[in-house]
Structure formats: structure tokens, C-alpha cells
Design a protein around this nucleic acid. Structure first.
Length: 754
DNA sequence: CTAGGGTTAG
């Protein structure tokens, strides 16, 4: 168990040590007599709905007591009725109950709960006397209305006039610290709590637990939890959430099981926290059990619980279960919509193949449209997810529309939305607009900086990437391992070997970040780009690195372009062993043996493909023009006579005159197998690009998505097409983004190209 | 008067 924090005896002198001996907060009611006329007039001033409620408690009767207003005020809280509070307040004034401290306190609380902090404060200031509950009500109001700094200043005011805090008061102050991430004040309060030995109290312990959780100190949060004498369901829930929020999901689930074992009944809030943990752990089994449990304990229809389960199912690919839950919800909240959209957005990266990923993305956009029509207003969660979807769909037009919507609604100023926008423009091939979006952000997080650095790197703009990295360090943001992936890949693309090694060293020694596979991949990539393929192999051996698929495909591409065939075969066989179910790899290997004329190996690979039932590869491309999606398969007969085929033929002719040579050995053609392997394949992206050229204006960018990675032949061809047509052509394949312009590609003609 | 929850970016 971790030790308690040091007691900071800061400005706690005003805190009263007599915390345990507080005067009873409730003030006895004083009964008064009122004239009939007065009472009737007061009753008439009530709004209709409350007059009705009033008569139920005998409001017409002239002997009404001050406490009779409490249920009415409670009703205002429950229904969030602003006009109701004002009306009842008026009635109370007329009835002459303004001296009733208890009632006035309740009124302050009611104003606060209804979000009317100005009224609450005005009433508070007008009171001739207040007790600690009045003070606490006002503070709690500020916390609930997202004004934690006001809550703290009220707390200081109270201490200044000699008020005594209670455990409730301290809980609220801790809560305010938590919203402000003010760990310093939090520790002072904690010091006071330790000094007067009241850590055992649940309202204090629970608040401490969530404070430390929010301030990223899981040990302290657990410590606070353990010191609570009578742990209630809220204590357990707080500590479970703390585990989840601080990256220890497994412990969170353990604590949940322990809670059940100790016979503490979870409630809907507990289950939501647990479900959220299941989600991050992709623990579908546990989540399903919690789903059953939620039904058993009667909170199966709680909206937050349902949203969590729905999201869990989505993230685990159980679309129909998620849809069933969604359809069963009677009042769909914004969070429900957001979870649906985020779930589908997530599916686009989890999907097995590019084609299904694409359809999940389309589905997410459809849900977003339905949300817009439903009358609810999208928020920052919605916009961030939708922008991510636009990124994976390379859907620039939709992305621009969402951009406009974020501007109009004011959510553009949110840092997460801003970062999502940077990524959207980047992944749609527009580095200039990505950079503009980044520059216009008012605040930036590590993720924002990292996104922009990686964006520059992906576009082959090494200098800008490195400059931005230095800017980021200059403003004091600490890079993480993903930042270094951007930095190293920028160096590697530009062939800056010395800088790459220097940054690699900086990462390990200055920032104490252990290299991961992506960093190695950058360095291997760099050696290969510089033509040092044996150095690349040496580097792998030297680092005891077990290469992953990405590294093998870099080595394959390098070996092929440098004519080191034996290395290429070796690497390809390794890749196949690593990904035995990957049809793309089989075709790659097949092509390599075919082009080398190694027929024995050709038939061996063919046999393996038959055994594994790999007989075709889903080469699909699609292009979106004016919000309509067009899908293409590799050159099938029906396209031969079309205008698309004509354009393509013409482009081929003109490309040949510019020196382009067809590579005839690429076998990525389905259906007409045997023949097709010998023919220059019109892979799907060629058709999609031709279609795009035909159907857009002369200056427009062409943006195509492809389900598998581009082959070398198509890559060469499209480069030439970008010269012939003076167009920018963007192709996002399964591995990376290719932005072709004036005969060049942003990938630097490299990176797993086969 | 009090404490815990669901959905966002690399």
C-alpha cells in the first residue's frame, strides 16, 4: 500500500479543528399566523402546475407551514423548472417565511440545482444569517454548474467569516479541486483531513478517491478508498473507475469481482464503469455477463448502461446485437448517437478488409445524418468521431461540411475536434489545410502536435516535421513514442541517416522511451531507401528484433527494387509464415516467383494457396463523386468497351511514350485466373482514377480508396498520369496514402510497394 | 448540503 501524501500545512489556519462538533444544521421551524387574505393572495401567485401540487398537500388551507414548500421546491429540482422556483420564491416572500434559515437554504439549493447561480448568489447575499449548509449549498451549486473556481472562492469566504466546514463541505471542495486539477489545494485539504483524522468518512474518502484518480494518481486513489471505514457502493464504484481511468483495467475488473464477493450490490453507475472497462479491454465475455447482471438487478433499461453495452458490442463487431439495443431505446440521447457513430468509426480500423471498413464508414455517416435530422444537436464527441470517419473514407467534401458545422456551432475551438480536423485534412491529402487547421488551434495537446508532425512526415515534408518537433519541445510539450515515429519516419523518407540516429538516441536517452517496432521499421526503411539493404538486415540482427509484417514488406520492396531476389524471397516466405491467412502475401510471393521464372516455387505456392483456399484477392477501389460512391473491380470484360476503358487505353498509350513500361507479371486478378496473370492487369484503382478523370472538372483532385496495397506497376502508371492530366491524384491503399502530383508520389516511391 | 457513470483526436 502506498503511503499517504505529505501533510501540506499551507493556508489551512482558517480551517476549524472542531469539525466533529458542528452545530446541527437544521434550524427549528417557527410557526406564525397569517391572515387569510395574505395566504390566498400568495396561493394565487403560484403557477398553475404548482397550485395543483399545492392543493394536494392542503395548500388552500391557511395554516400552511414553511416545511410544506420543500416538496414543491424538490419538484422544481426534479423537473428543472426555472419559473417554478421563482414563483414559489415569490410565494414564500409573501408568506413571510424569509427568516426561515432552513427554507432559505433549501431555496438557494433549488436555484443552484436549476442552474440559476446568479439568483442563488443574490438570495444568499440577501440573507441575514447563514449556516454551514447554506454555504455548502452555494458551493455545491457552483461545482455542479461548472464553476469550480467560484466554489473555492465561496469556501474561502466562509472560512474568512469563521464558518466551520463539515465533511460534506470538504467533499465539495475536493470535488472542485478535482475539476480544476488543483492538486495543491487538494493536498492542503487532505492535510487537514489527516490532521483531524476524518479519512474514514465515506463522503470524504470517496471525494479523495476521485480527486486522486483524476489527478492520475491511482495509488493515492486506492489508498483513500482503503481508509474508508464503511465503504458504500459509491466508494467501490469510485475506485473501480479510478482503475479504469488510470490504465489498470484488469485491476478494475478484479475490484469489481471483489466487491461482488463482499456482498455489495452494484448499481447502474457501477455497471457502466465496469462496462467501460470491458470496452477498453475488448472483454466481450465479461461485458456480456455484466449485461445479464444488469438485467437481473433491474437496471437493464438504464440509458447509460444500455449505451455502454451497445458500444461494447459495436467495438467487438456484434453489429446486430448493438442494433437490437439501439432500436429498443425509447428516448435516444446524444450519447447514444455518439456511441453508435464512434462504434462504427472504430470498426473502420478494426475491419478485416478495406471493403467492409468502407461500408462501416458509410454507415457511420448515415447515422450522423439521422442524428442531424432527429432534432438533437451534435456535440464535440459527435464531430470528433465523424471527422475520423471522413478521414478513413478520404471523404473531403463531407469533411468540409463537418468543418463548417463545427465552426458554426463553436465546437471547432475544442482541442479534440481541432486535432480530428487536422487529421481529416491530412488523410484527405491536403497538407496545407491540415497545417492551417493546426495553426488556428488555440490550444494544442501532445496528440495535436504529434498528428501534425506525422502529417508532415507522411507527406514527405521532413524539414517541416522536424521544425515542428523542435517547436513542440520549445513550448515544453514532452514527446511520446508516437511523436518519435513521426520524427524518425520524416528522417527516413529524406534519407537523413545521421539525424535519424541522433533522434533515436534522444528518444532512448533523453526521454527514456523504449523503441517499439514502428521505430525499428523507420530505421529499416531508411537503410533500404539508401540502398543499404544488407545494413538493414544487420540492424535487425543487431537489435535482436523479431520483425513484424511491416518490416518484412519493407525488406521485400527493397530487395525487389535493388534486384536482390534471394533476400526478397526469403523475406516474403517469412512474411507468409507470419501471416498465413493473408491472401495479399500469397499473391505477392506468387508474382515474385513468376517474374523470376521459378516454376517449381510457383506451383508450390499455388498448392499452398489451394490448401488455404486462397484463390482470389478482393481488389476493390471506390471513388466518391458528388456524394455518390462508385465501386470498381479489376478490369472485367464489361469495362472494356466503356468510356473508362477508352480513357485508360489512351492514357496507357501516352504514358508509354513518356517511358512508362507495363509490368506484365502482376497476378492480382480474380476470376479469369490463368490468362489474367499474363496480361497487364487493369487493377481497380486505374479504373477508378479513369472514372474520376471523366466525371470531374479539370482541376479537381481525384481521391480513391483501395482495399489492398498498390502494386508497383499501378504506382508507376499513376505517377505518369498525374503528369499527363496535371491533376493531383490521391490513393489511400491498405497501407498508406499516396499523393501523386507532377510525376511524384508523397510516399517517395517506397514503403511496402510490391 | 455529499460522493461514483455512458460517447471524442495521433
Amino acid at each position: 500500500m502506498a503511503s499517504l501524501p505529505p501533510v501540506v500545512v499551507g493556508n489551512t489556519s482558517k480551517l476549524n479543528p472542531e469539525v466533529k462538533k458542528l452545530p446541527s444544521p437544521s434550524v427549528p421551524f417557527e410557526k406564525k399566523n397569517y391572515s387569510t387574505k395574505e395566504s390566498d393572495r400568495a396561493f394565487a401567485s403560484l403557477s398553475l402546475e404548482f397550485r395543483e401540487a399545492f392543493s394536494l398537500i392542503g395548500g388552500g388551507d391557511r395554516k400552511i407551514e414553511s416545511s410544506s414548500y420543500v416538496p414543491l421546491l424538490q419538484e422544481c429540482i426534479d423537473t428543472n423548472s426555472v419559473s417554478g422556483v421563482e414563483s414559489i420564491h415569490g410565494h414564500i416572500v409573501k408568506a413571510g417565511f424569509c427568516q426561515e434559515l432552513f427554507l432559505m437554504t433549501f431555496l438557494v439549493n433549488t436555484y443552484a440545482k436549476c442552474g440559476m447561480m446568479e439568483s442563488a448568489r443574490r438570495l444568499f447575499d440577501s440573507l441575514p444569517k447563514r449556516n454551514v449548509v447554506t454555504w455548502t449549498s452555494l458551493m455545491s451549486g457552483y461545482v455542479h454548474n461548472s464553476r469550480p473556481e467560484s466554489a473555492i472562492s465561496v469556501f474561502k469566504e466562509m472560512l474568512d467569516v469563521g464558518g466551520y466546514p463539515t465533511n460534506y463541505t470538504l467533499g465539495i471542495v475536493l470535488n472542485a479541486c478535482s475539476s480544476l486539477f488543483d492538486i495543491e489545494l487538494g493536498k492542503q485539504i487532505h492535510g487537514y483531513i489527516v490532521k483531524y483524522d476524518i479519512e474514514y468518512d465515506a463522503s470524504i474518502g470517496n471525494a479523495l478517491c476521485s480527486l486522486y484518480s483524476k489527478c492520475r494518481s491511482l495509488d493515492m486513489a486506492i489508498n483513500a478508498f482503503q481508509r474508508i471505514e464503511e465503504k458504500n457502493v459509491i466508494s467501490w464504484t469510485a475506485v473501480i473507475s479510478a482503475c479504469g481511468e488510470n490504465g489498470n483495467s484488469a485491476m478494475g475488473l478484479d475490484v469489481f469481482v471483489q466487491m461482488l464477493a463482499e456482498g455489495v450490490q452494484p448499481n447502474e453507475v457501477t455497471l457502466t464503469s465496469v462496462l467501460s472497462i470491458c470496452c477498453t479491454m475488448q472483454a466481450l465475455d465479461m461485458g456480456t455477463q455484466v449485461h445479464s447482471l444488469s438485467i437481473k438487478i433491474g437496471c437493464g433499461s438504464d440509458l447509460a448502461v444500455t449505451n455502454s453495452i451497445m458500444y461494447l458490442y459495436l467495438k467487438n463487431g456484434c453489429i446486430s446485437e448493438a442494433k437490437k439495443l439501439f432500436d429498443g431505446i425509447t428516448t435516444i440521447s446524444l450519447v447514444t448517437w455518439n456511441a453508435m457513430i464512434a462504434g462504427h468509426a472504430e470498426m473502420t480500423s478494426l475491419a478485416e478488409d478495406g471493403l467492409s471498413a468502407y461500408f462501416y464508414g458509410i454507415e457511420a455517416l448515415k447515422i450522423f445524418q439521422r442524428l442531424n435530422r432527429s432534432g438533437l444537436r451534435p456535440d464535440l464527441y459527435t464531430f470528433s468521431s465523424v471527422l475520423t470517419v471522413c478521414s478513413s473514407l478520404v471523404a473531403l467534401e463531407q469533411g468540409e461540411q463537418v468543418h463548417a458545422q463545427t465552426l458554426k456551432t463553436g465546437f471547432l475551438s475544442d482541442v479534440v475536434v481541432g486535432t480530428a480536423l487536422v487529421n481529416m485534412y491530412n488523410k484527405c491529402g491536403s497538407i496545407n489545410r491540415a497545417s492551417k487547421a493546426f495553426v488556428e488551434m488555440s490550444t494544442r495537446t501532445l496528440i495535436s502536435w504529434t498528428s501534425m508532425i506525422n502529417a508532415f512526415a507522411q507527406h514527405g515534408l521532413a524539414q517541416q516535421a522536424l521544425q515542428l518537433f523542435e517547436d513542440m519541445r520549445f513550448v515544453g510539450v514532452r514527446p511520446n513514442k508516437i511523436t518519435f515515429v513521426g520524427v524518425l519516419s520524416a528522417c527516413s523518407q529524406a534519407g537523413m541517416i545521421d539525424q535519424a540516429l541522433a533522434y533515436y538516441d534522444m528518444m532512448i536517452n533523453e526521454y527514456k522511451i523504449n523503441p517499439v517496432m514502428d521505430h525499428y521499421a523507420c530505421l529499416v526503411d531508411m537503410f533500404v531507401r539508401l540502398g543499404q539493404i544488407y545494413e538493414a538486415f544487420d540492424f535487425i540482427k543487431k537489435t535482436d528484433l523479431v520483425p513484424n509484417e511491416f518490416i518484412w514488406s519493407i525488406l521485400i520492396a527493397g530487395s525487389r527494387s535493388q534486384g536482390k531476389l534471394e533476400l526478397g524471397f526469403y523475406a516474403a516466405e517469412q512474411l507468409l509464415e507470419l501471416k498465413p491467412k493473408d491472401s495479399e502475401t500469397y499473391f505477392l510471393l506468387l508474382n515474385m516467383y513468376l517474374s523470376a521464372g521459378r516454376w517449381k516455387d510457383v506451383s508450390r505456392v499455388r498448392k499452398m494457396m489451394r490448401d488455404e483456399k486462397v484463390d482470389k484477392i478482393t481488389d476493390w477501389s471506390w471513388i466518391s463523386i458528388r456524394n455518390k460512391v462508385y465501386t470498381f473491380k479489376p478490369g472485367s470484360k464489361k469495362n472494356q468497351a466503356s468510356e473508362v476503358a477508352k480513357i485508360l487505353e489512351d492514357l496507357h498509350d501516352r504514358a508509354r511514350r513518356l517511358g512508362y513500361q507495363v509490368e506484365t507479371n502482376m497476378a492480382i486478378v480474380d476470376e479469369e485466373k490463368e490468362e489474367a496473370t499474363a496480361l497487364p492487369a487493369d487493377h481497380s484503382e486505374k479504373l477508378a482514377v479513369a472514372f474520376g478523370l471523366l466525371n470531374t472538372s479539370n482541376e479537381a483532385q481525384i481521391r480513391v480508396i483501395k482495399s489492398i496495397s498498390m502494386c508497383r506497376d499501378c504506382h508507376n502508371f499513376i505517377k505518369v498520369v498525374s503528369i499527363l492530366t496535371s491533376r493531383t491524384i490521391i490513393i489511400r491503399d491498405s497501407k498508406r496514402l499516396h499523393k501523386f502530383f507532377n510525376g511524384q508520389c508523397s510516399c517517395g516511391d517506397f514503403g511496402g510497394l510490391v
